[in-house]
Simulated assay, not measured.
Amino acid sequence: MKDVIFDDFQNSVNESLLRHRSLLDIMTKLQESQARINRAVAKSATNCGCIEIQTKKVHLPKDFNIEDIKILTKNSKSSIKGNLCESCRDIIESEIGNNLFYLTALCNSLDINLYDIMLKEYNKIDTLGKYTFR
Rank of each mutant, 00 (worst) to 15 (best):
S44I: 05
V58N: 04
L30S: 04
F64C: 10
A35N: 03
K81E: 07
N83M: 09
N83F: 11
T46F: 13
S94L: 08
G82A: 09
P61W: 06
N75Y: 11
A40H: 01
R39S: 10
K62E: 14
N47C: 03
D25Q: 13
S44D: 04
I91C: 06
K70A: 12
S94I: 02
M27T: 03
S79T: 12
I66V: 10
K74W: 02
A35F: 11
V58A: 08
K62W: 11
I53H: 14
C48R: 08
L72Q: 02
I53A: 07
T46G: 07
C50W: 09
D68N: 13
I80F: 15
L60P: 11
I91G: 05
K70Y: 09
D25T: 04
E93S: 10
N65R: 11
N75R: 13
R36T: 03
L72V: 00
R21H: 14
I71R: 12
N83R: 07
K62A: 12
D90C: 04
S79K: 14
P61I: 05
D90Q: 12
S22M: 06
L23Q: 05
N83Y: 09
L72N: 00
K29E: 08
I69W: 02
N75T: 11
K56L: 05
C88W: 09
I26R: 05
V41N: 02
L24Y: 06
E93L: 12
R39K: 15
R21G: 07
S94E: 12
K29A: 01
K57P: 03
L24P: 01
E86K: 12
L23G: 00
A40G: 01
C88Y: 08
I26A: 01
R19S: 09
Q34L: 09
I69Q: 01
S33D: 00
E67T: 07
T46Y: 13
N75D: 15
S87E: 11
D68L: 08
A40D: 02
S22T: 15
S78W: 00
K70W: 03
A40L: 03
E67N: 13
D68C: 08
S22G: 06
E32M: 08
R21M: 08
S16D: 13
E32W: 07
E52D: 13
K62Q: 14
N65V: 13
S76Q: 08
D25P: 02
Q34N: 05
I37A: 00
S76W: 00
